[in-house]
C-alpha cells in the first residue's frame, strides 16, 4: 500500500519527474509551437521564437495547398482502419475458438502465430515488392491494407485471445443452466463482455498501422502514400520549411497521440505478448 511520504519529498519527486517528462515531451511541444509561426520566424533562436514572434495559422493552409495534405491523411485513415477492421474480422473467430474451445495444440498454434511477427520485414521485401509489381498493387491502398493486416494479425489474435480468456467460464455455464440458447448466450452474455477487449485491440492496432513506416515507404509513391510517406518527402525540401514541416507533423501525430493516451495499458499487453504482467 502507499507508504506515508513527507509532502516535501513528494514535491521534490514531482519537480524532478515533471522536468524529465517535459524533456521527453519537448520535441512534440516545440513543433506544436513552430507550426503556428511564419517560416521566417521558425528558424530564429528559441528564446526569440518564444517571446518575440507573432502567431499565425498560415502554415496549415500552405501544407494543404502545396501537397494536398488531406489526400494523404485519408490514405492513412483508410489504410490503418481498413487493415485493423479486416484483421479483426479474421482474428475474432480464431481467438474466440482458441479461448473457449482450447485443444491440445492451441498453445502451439498461438506460439507459431506469434513467431510470424518476429520475421524481419526486410527479409521479404524483395518478393513482396515483385508480387505487388506483377499484380499492379504497388502504390495502391488495397495492397497496403493487406500487408498491414498481415503484419498486425498476430498481435490482434494474441490480444483478443488474452481478453477472451479473462471472461469467466462460470458465467457461460450459469447462462446455460438458466436455459439460454447458444445464440442468446453469444449475443447477450459473451458479446457485451468481449466488446471492451475488442475496442482496445482495435485502438492499439490502428496506432501501430498508422505509424508503420517500412512498408508504407517502400510500397507507395504519390497516390497511396499515407502520412508516414508524405512526411518523408520533407527530407529533400525546397526553401524554408520548418513551419510547414511542423504543421504537417502536428496534424499527423495529433490523432494518434490522443488515441495513444487511452491505450497505455493495451500497449504493454499487445507488445509483450503476456511476458510481462
Amino acid at each position: 500500500m502507499a507508504r506515508a511520504v513527507t509532502p516535501s519529498r513528494k514535491a521534490f519527486t514531482t519537480v524532478v519527474a515533471g522536468l524529465l517528462g517535459l524533456m521527453m515531451f519537448f520535441p512534440v511541444l516545440w513543433i506544436f509551437i513552430l507550426s503556428f509561426k511564419s517560416e521566417g520566424d521558425a528558424i530564429k533562436a528559441p528564446m526569440e521564437i518564444l517571446f518575440n514572434t507573432g502567431w499565425t495559422t498560415e502554415s496549415y493552409g500552405a501544407v494543404q495547398e502545396r501537397s494536398d495534405y488531406f489526400k494523404h491523411f485519408w490514405n492513412s485513415v483508410i489504410i490503418s482502419v481498413g487493415s485493423t477492421v479486416l484483421g479483426l474480422a479474421v482474428a475474432i473467430p480464431a481467438a474466440w475458438a482458441m479461448a473457449f474451445v482450447p485443444g491440445k495444440r492451441t498453445k502451439d498454434v498461438l506460439m507459431w502465430m506469434l513467431s510470424t511477427k518476429m520475421l524481419p520485414p526486410v527479409g521479404v521485401l524483395v518478393p513482396i515488392y515483385l508480387i505487388f509489381r506483377d499484380l499492379g498493387l504497388l502504390d495502391s491502398r488495397v495492397g497496403l491494407v493487406f500487408v498491414l493486416m498481415m503484419i498486425n494479425l498476430p498481435i490482434i489474435i494474441w490480444m483478443l485471445y488474452t481478453y477472451f480468456r479473462e471472461i469467466p467460464g462460470e458465467i457461460l455455464e450459469a447462462a446455460r443452466m438458466d436455459g439460454a440458447s447458444l445464440r442468446n448466450e453469444v449475443i447477450y452474455v459473451l458479446t457485451p463482455m468481449a466488446v471492451p477487449g475488442m475496442a482496445s485491440t482495435m485502438l492499439l492496432n490502428v496506432i501501430l498501422a498508422w505509424n508503420e513506416a517500412f512498408w508504407t515507404l517502400n510500397l507507395t509513391a504519390a497516390n497511396a502514400a499515407p502520412l508516414t510517406a508524405f512526411i518523408a518527402s520533407y527530407s529533400s525540401p525546397e526553401g524554408l520549411f520548418y513551419a510547414k514541416l511542423s504543421a504537417a507533423s502536428v496534424m499527423a501525430i495529433a490523432p494518434i497521440l490522443i488515441m495513444g493516451w487511452f491505450s497505455q495499458k493495451q500497449l504493454v499487453r499487445g507488445l509483450t505478448f503476456g511476458a510481462v504482467k
Binding site: K10, P27, I231, G260
Partner: peptide, 28 residues
C-alpha cells in the same frame, strides 16, 4: 514514487512512442 500529477507526467514521458518514425527523424 508518489507525486502530484502522475497521470500527466506519465503521458508526457510516453508520448514519443506514438510519434511516427518519419516525423521524429525529420524533427530531430
Amino acid at each position: 514514487q508518489p507525486m502530484w500529477g502522475q497521470g500527466i507526467i506519465r503521458i508526457m514521458v510516453i508520448a514519443p512512442f506514438f510519434v511516427m518514425p518519419t516525423v521524429s527523424g525529420l524533427v530531430w
